[in-house]
Design a protein around this nucleic acid. Sequence first.
DNA 1: CGTTTCGGTCTACGTGTGTTGACTAAAGGT
DNA 2: ACCTTTAGTCAACACACGTAGACCGAAACG
Lengths: 187, 187
Amino acid sequence: MADEPTRVSRAERRRRTEARILDAARDLFGRSGYDRTTIRAVAAAAGTDPGLVMRYFGSKERLFARVAELSPDEPVAGPAEDVAELLLASLGDKLRGDRSGTVAMLRSMLTHPEAGREVRAAITGRQRQVADAIPADDAALRAALVGAITLGVVVGRELLDLDGLRDAAPEDVVDVLRPAVHAIVEG
Amino acid sequence: MADEPTRVSRAERRRRTEARILDAARDLFGRSGYDRTTIRAVAAAAGTDPGLVMRYFGSKERLFARVAELSPDEPVAGPAEDVAELLLASLGDKLRGDRSGTVAMLRSMLTHPEAGREVRAAITGRQRQVADAIPADDAALRAALVGAITLGVVVGRELLDLDGLRDAAPEDVVDVLRPAVHAIVEG
DNA sequence: CGTTTCGGTCTACGTGTGTTGACTAAAGGT
DNA sequence: ACCTTTAGTCAACACACGTAGACCGAAACG
């Protein structure tokens, strides 16, 4: 609990508090969703003041936008078999990855309109790529269903933490899912 | 806009207003989630008064409980092949069905603690049934993943309405998913 | 007809929210 | 040494919410 006695520049102090606020916000948005997360709670968790949060980020809306910036998926292309494997690998990454930002986004996406739009756009874009790589004539549906599977796994694990999913190793999940994804992507 | 001139008994009037409130609440909870749905908005949509909503349902919490009562899934059992088909049929039903109640539940489940608990319990119970019918030693994981697929499809369609899913016919969805589900349920 | 019951409305209270602006004090610059 | 900038705090605003209780008018009943 002892403060660092090291002299720290003004700019550095600012950077640190901003980071603390961002961390607290990510955690709280992820755990409680947009509406139930209050600026006051974020400030308290970051050990600072609501007014400061407003000064640094302008509004709750913009704070959320900063937290929810989602790193775009790497593009997919190539023959159907490879696409299936790419999608599986990408799912594995999601299950291993940092999570907290994505969780905030996902949880809020269902209540907060702007968040919903952004996620929808991201998913739609990716689905178009996948659909282009699938030879079947119902490619759009198949792409959507693969997306839905990913969505279901992530939501089930991160948001609902369902029993069988919470503890499962990412590799096992991918292994069990492999034949299923191949079956959908390839005719 | 003309009122029915028919004489209607007091009990009948009450039943109708209660139903109107319930309908409005289902719609709004489903569209906006628990937090963003206000008693005032429900009352307005039902063409009545916030105070009346309180009198009839006691609290917002209890109103939500009434809306979100979810009809339990019919139990599954039998050999793995049949289980897979039962699950697919059940998914088809969900895609065809009334939706609005389920949607309210689903959307609120991620923000509203009590709703979350109830959904989680329902899903967990069903997963145990499915796991018992699967011969593999990682039955729990497989059951969870089939559940996740259902979840993803319903969430993707009803909550996010993703492009390829919104318009798709339930039969087509089930058809495309059939080999995938079989692959997961059977070793 | 008089009285009671009850569906429906109106007003107001208390609380928690996002947000603002004045303020303090320390750091940076000259 | 002085002045300016700025990280951080405090107190207050306006507003929307869930909820409670007084109130009104018509149906039900004797």
